[in-house]
Simulated scan of single mutants.
Amino acid sequence: MHKWGYLAVAIMSEVAATSALKSAEGFTKFWPSCLVVIGYATAFYFLSLTLKTIPVGMAYAIWSGAGTALVALVAWIFMGQKLDVPAIVGILLIVSGVLVLNLFSKSSAH
C-alpha cells in the first residue's frame, strides 16, 4: 500500500475510535469499547507503517490535524454538536496548516 494510503487508514481508524469513545461510556459498553480499542490499535499500527517513509513530524501533523477536523465533522453530523464561528475558523486553520505543510514545506516527504 502507498505511504499516503497507510496514513489515510491511520486517520480514519483514529476518527472511528475517537468517535466511539462517547458511546463506550467509560469502557462500560462492550461493543463501542471494542471499536475504540481496535480503532486505536489499527491507527497506531498504520501510523507506524507510515513512519517508514514519511518524517514523524510531518506524519503526526497530518494525522492529528486531519483527525481533529474529521472528528469535529463527525460530532457535528452524527452527535448534534454545535459548531460556532470560532470553532469553524479554528478547524479551517488546522486544515490550512496541514495543506501548507504538504504543499510548501521542504520537510514533507513527496
Score class of each variant (00 low, 15 high):
E14M: 12
L47F: 02
K29H: 12
S19E: 04
T18L: 03
F30M: 12
V9S: 11
P32A: 13
S23W: 06
F30W: 13
S13T: 09
P32C: 13
G39S: 06
S48K: 12
V36P: 09
T18M: 11
S48T: 13
A20Y: 11
A20P: 05
S19T: 05
A20L: 08
V9P: 03
A43R: 13
K22A: 09
M12F: 13
T42E: 01
T28M: 12
A17M: 04
A16S: 06
W31T: 13
F27A: 08
P32E: 14
L21S: 02
V36C: 13
F46W: 04
A41G: 15
F44I: 12
E14K: 07
V9L: 12
G26N: 12
F44W: 05
V36D: 06
A16E: 04
F27L: 04
F27P: 00
A16Y: 01
A41Y: 07
C34D: 06
M12V: 15
G39R: 07
P32N: 11
A24R: 08
T42H: 03
S23F: 14
V15W: 10
Y45I: 14
T18P: 01
F46C: 05
S13W: 07
S33T: 10
E25N: 07
A43E: 03
F30L: 15
W31L: 15
L21K: 05
A17D: 04
K29Q: 14
K22E: 08
G39L: 14
T18D: 08
G39D: 08
K22V: 09
L47G: 01
F46H: 03
V15F: 10
I11S: 04
V15Y: 09
A41K: 09
C34Q: 08
S23K: 11
A10E: 03
A20I: 09
A43P: 00
L35A: 15
V36E: 05
V9T: 10
K22L: 05
C34P: 01
V37F: 14
V15M: 07
A10I: 06
A10R: 11
M12T: 11
L47Q: 03
E25A: 10
P32I: 09
T42F: 02
C34H: 05
V15N: 03
A41P: 10
A24K: 13
Y40T: 00
L21W: 03
T42V: 07
P32Y: 12
Y45T: 11
L35K: 02
I11E: 02
F27H: 10
A24W: 07
A17W: 00
A20E: 04
T18W: 03
K22F: 01
Y45F: 14
K22D: 05
T28P: 04
Y40V: 09
Y40K: 04
I11L: 06
I11N: 05
F30G: 08
I38V: 15
C34I: 14
G39N: 13
I11H: 06
T28D: 09
A41R: 10
I11R: 05
T42K: 01
F44K: 08
C34V: 15
A20V: 05
A16H: 00
S19D: 02
L47N: 03
S13L: 06
E25F: 05
T42W: 00
E14S: 13
A10K: 07
P32S: 14
L21T: 02
S33K: 05
L35V: 15
V15L: 06
A10V: 04
Y40L: 09
F46K: 02
A10W: 04
F30A: 13
F30R: 10
W31S: 12
S33M: 01
